[in-house]
Design a protein around this nucleic acid. Structure first.
Lengths: 394, 394
DNA sequence: GATATTTTTTTGCACTATTCAAATAAAACG
DNA sequence: CGTTTTATTTGAATAGTGCAAAAAAATATC
């Protein structure tokens, strides 16, 4: 239980100040005091500590407003560095960033499946070593490692409970990396990590709550409230891919009927296009992909436009369900499927607007991510940034 | 922004101690210190204050464990009294309770629709005055009023934005009652209030997160995490009644297809039974109600058993969707529909177990409320109890 | 029954970190 | 160049927890 101690008092204020600097940089002590309602001496003493720690640096402002020139404060982004790892089903991506999330180095490995637990962890360790070397950073300057792992993750222990594509269970990622590198290690599900990446780096300001949905080979979502991830009791909050929206619908790989995944993934789009073609007795002479469905729709072929509109409608239904349960301020969509944004987004928005119950729900902002492929691996880094900047514990 | 001040430090500890007494009553200062890891002097000084405020009282224990006899502490449940109001579509129920949630008086009014805003508020004021009188409590001893209002509620302002059955909009409930009675007033949606009532009075211990679903004429849910309600951005979190589970299904009153409400409300059960009867060309000579469907099913009539099993399956699907998004530790079901628990619960549990993805999700506890009709009005009272016992602000 | 032991609670002082008021610093303005 | 304004620091006051020891009140032991 978090008691009311002097440490709590101080760490709350430290957190407030650090975040104020981070979000309003450059900012003076006096401004911080005014805007946070902390007293000037409190701000001064905490800033002094932050300067000593090297987390923050000073710089005089050129002009003033008719008084002593304020000393502007900045986050010392290169005080420490962070490693983010995105361990997908087929590839392992790693980056090194500074505290501002600027990527200083990146590396990518292809995983050969099937793989043993030991060699999976070896690849991970090697990719971390390698990317740190490439970024020209000393291992001692690394403050922590964040891992976005596909499949089911137990956050508290940092274990991958079940990684379907690798056919591995109970991989002790956190334990292995902490032993190897002696730094903080955070492990999170990849969809949730992506959501955190979006919340921190997507340019959304200080949202109360936001849901990020990844529409790729599967569908996953992450719920971020007050800059922090919502996990749920067993770390599966946001698993919307297998949300039933069509109780009598197509059988999903999970065995249930009409999961959102039977509508809104790349393979699902291909399947639906093929089915439509078959219905019309048409043949397709080339191998159909989600990309080609998009291309054909752009070329004006109504069959493919219809497929994408059906997909958009289903996504809209799924999002409306999410809105009615979680009621976020904003929903951000990402993943390969959203490359067809041109066709999908209008109908998604229209569906949400038609189907949502209240004005507040209808007006939920729905956007497409601008972060691209880095969202997940940046999310892995953000797992650490949350600890550093938003911690009320340390 | 909540700063780190001495008040914060103290109120955190006060909250910890007050809650410890509440949940572990009777308990001595020494035990509190041991179990909360607060120091004995801190506990003593805060308890002294609580005694002075009258929130807590002392009593010596008869026996000891080989040392000074501990002074046991109790919450002084009759120090203050609370009013809870359940403003449903047709009736207005009000209760007075002590701080332990013991009901000291109750009253019920039938609302004549249509009704004007002024007379609606008058009935509410009158019911409060009347129930306080009935409970033999002085108005000055009332610490606050909690209102569970059906329809869409704006929590921050305490306004009822939209009350469908009364055909009223923008009723300033909080404002009106605070002006009249000069006490704290909290207004909340009735389904969410019910969820809070269940969390506080349902005997569930200290759950991290819990979802309570009310299956009556409509379907509504409330999400409670760490003893507090989750509202979402626009106060509609938990509106699962219009969750689409059958994209091509029956048209709902909201205009969409296949909402959970088209399966799992009393009227929906009746409709489905009638449809089944019509399919078989059968006639029902009496007016069918949800109760009679249950009775007929109990009597062994397979048609009605089928209807209830379909209903249970749909509820199971809906709950699985909720589990995959919010991932609560426990789901509690209430409302008139659950009178058919005998038929519904087994299939609901089976469906969740079959359809949920992970072990953790499958094992989500699903129970039926034991609180009965008082859940909502007790939830209205709990709105105030949260403030009193869990407040970190005052 | 006197003494030792144990347990509970309080007391007094130390410590931490904020708060308030005032001092200092440094620039702009006239 | 003095006055005003704004920024930051200093030092005493204050609030509240933490620690150690004392006091209180019971039981256990001889």
């Amino acid at each position: 239980m978090q008691r009311g101690t002097f440490q709590l008092m101080k760490s709350v204020n430290k957190s407030i100040i650090l975040n104020k600097i981070r979000t309003c940089e450059p900012i003076s002590r006096a401004q911080i005091a005014k805007e946070t309602e902390l007293t000037p001496p409190t701000v001064s003493s905490i800033v002094k500590e932050l300067l000593e720690q090297g987390m923050v640096y000073e710089q005089k402002k050129a002009t003033s407003m008719g008084g002593r020139r304020p000393t502007m404060l900045y986050i010392n982004k290169t005080a420490y560095y962070l490693v983010g790892v995105d361990a997908g089903p087929e590839t392992m991506n790693a980056i090194v960033t500074d505290l501002g999330g600027t990527i200083l180095g990146r590396i990518s490995y292809v995983l050969n499946t099937p793989i043993t637990e030991a060699s999976f962890l070896d690849v991970m360790k090697q990719s971390i070593n390698e990317v740190v070397r490439l970024a020209n950073v000393k291992m001692e300057e690394i403050m922590g490692i964040g891992v976005a792992m596909h499949g089911v993750v137990e956050v508290a222990t940092g274990k991958s409970l079940y990684a379907p594509n690798l056919k591995l269970t109970d991989i002790p990622i956190k334990e292995a990396l902490e032993q190897e590198f002696c730094v903080t290690v955070k492990v999170e599900n990849d969809a949730r990590a992506m959501a955190l990446g979006e919340a921190w780096f997507g340019g959304h300001g200080d949202l109360g709550s936001m849901v990020t949905v990844n529409l790729g080979r599967g569908v996953g979502a992450g719920i971020v409230t007050d800059g922090k991830l919502f996990h749920g009791a067993k770390d599966i909050a946001g698993e919307i891919g297998h949300m039933t929206i069509d109780i009598n619908g197509e059988i999903c790989e999970c065995g249930n009927h009409g999961c959102l995944q039977t509508f809104a993934t790349g393979p699902a789009i291909v399947r639906r296009a093929q089915r439509k073609l078959a219905e019309r007795g048409a043949e397709h002479s080339f191998k159909l992909t989600a990309e080609s469905v998009f291309e054909l729709a752009k070329a004006g072929n109504t069959l493919y436009v219809d497929v994408l509109e059906e997909t958009g409608f289903a996504i809209g239904i799924g999002l409306t369900n999410v809105i009615h349960i979680v009621n976020p301020e904003k929903i951000v969509l990402g993943g390969g499927v959203m490359k067809s944004e041109e066709f999908l987004l209008p109908i998604i928005k229209k569906t949400v607007n038609n189907n949502a119950l209240t004005e507040g729900a209808k007006n939920t902002e729905v956007k497409v991510t601008k972060l691209g492929k880095d969202a997940t691996v940046l999310g892995a880094v953000a797992l650490l940034l949350v600890e550093i900047f938003d911690s009320v514990l340390g």
